[in-house]
């Protein structure tokens, strides 16, 4: 796969060389653009257009009154941004809190998903009896539609009828009263656990594929040099896995940070304060107050943060791999 991919660009170059020497017919030059027309039109309709509209309405007091009549909404200047970012006001304080919760959530989910995925991938790297079945079973949580599996976790977390309290209280007797799992302080660890459950198989899938591309000779050479299992992981596996990990971390970060489906399915549209993830927070604020101006300002701030983090991460890791 990799070989064929690296082979194609070379061919492209010779083709380009030819094209430069002999100007192709006009129709040929137009064709690549014509093929892109449907995609560009749709991109304008669903991405570029809405984004511009989103930035514009973040500068207006777009409330329910003006929703169907947005051109008459009063201008707000930077008011919406002031409301969103003023940490002394109620809205700004809640947004900052939600941001902190989301960041903690992302770090925990990312760390544990990678750790579990890496462990399982290393342990299933060599052939053993039943390996194919184990790998398939591990992938199931990722294959299930999120809403279907998270609704099961909702059932598991029910105070009176759920399995978690049944095990903790009825079977292990660790607590005398039945704790709540879907409201209050326990809702945060609950949310983290559900998302790790769903996310780690993806890390496992990608890391497993990355491990397969590491040649066996390297491990054999390391064994001859007397390297133990841990040394092999540190010196051979991790460095060679770096490009795969780099992409994996970006994808997991964006998925987790923007996660909406899991908290929405687990808690409904009014999540507990302790587990108030940012996408759902902006959603709830926008649709309960019907103040789309402030909601849009919050979305724009969120986007800028994501661009900044991903950009810095990619630049830093790129430089490091260039130096190596």
């Amino acid at each position: 796969m990799v070989e064929t991919l690296t082979a194609t660009p070379v061919r492209h170059d010779t083709k380009n060389g030819k094209a430069a020497a002999k100007p192709p017919r006009r129709k040929r030059q137009l064709l690549p653009y014509l093929l892109l027309v449907p995609a560009i039109l749709l991109e304008l309709l669903i991405h570029i257009g809405p984004m511009i509209v989103g930035v514009i309405i973040s500068f207006y007091h777009l409330t329910q009154l003006y929703l169907a009549n947005w051109r008459h909404a009063p201008a707000a200047g930077l008011d919406n941004y002031r409301v969103a970012l003023n940490v002394n006001g109620a809205a700004g304080k809640a947004l900052l809190h939600s941001f902190t919760v989301t960041l903690t959530y992302t770090v925990l989910v990312l760390g544990f998903s990678w750790l579990l995925g890496m462990t399982a991938a290393v342990l299933t790297q060599r052939a053993f009896r039943g390996r194919a079945i184990v790998r398939t079973l591990f992938l199931l949580p990722f294959a299930l539609p999120i809403f279907a599996s998270v609704i099961t976790w909702n059932f598991m977390g029910q105070r009176d009828t759920g399995v978690i309290n049944h095990v903790l209280v009825d079977q292990l007797h660790t607590q005398t009263t039945r704790p709540f799992w879907l409201i209050g302080p326990n809702s945060f660890p609950m949310l983290v656990a559900v998302t790790i459950w769903r996310t780690w198989p993806f890390a496992f899938l990608i890391i497993s594929a990355g491990l397969q591309s590491i040649p066996d000779e390297l491990y054999e050479a390391a064994t001859l040099d007397g390297a133990g299992v841990m040394a092999q992981i540190r010196r051979v596996t991790l460095p060679l896995l770096a490009p795969v990990n780099r992409v994996l971390f970006v994808v997991l970060f964006l998925w987790t940070f923007n996660d909406f489906t899991t908290p929405y399915t687990l808690f409904g549209d009014t999540p507990p304060v302790q587990a108030d993830l940012i996408s759902l927070h902006i959603y709830t604020t926008s649709f309960t107050t019907w103040n789309f101006g402030t909601g849009s300002a919050m979305s724009v701030v969120l986007l800028l943060f994501l661009l900044l983090v991903t950009g810095i991460y990619l630049i830093v890791t790129n430089r490091r791999s260039d130096n190596a």
């Binding site: 991109e43 991405h47 947005w70 923007n258 996408s279 979305s299 724009v300 986007l303």
Partner: peptide, 20 residues
């Protein structure tokens, strides 16, 4: 452009699309 729109949060498109 195509690649970067994949990373944008859905909520960013939801509010303007609703208004549109």
């Amino acid at each position: 452009t195509v690649l970067s729109t994949q990373m944008f949060p859905g909520i960013l498109f939801l509010l303007p699309l609703f208004v549109i």
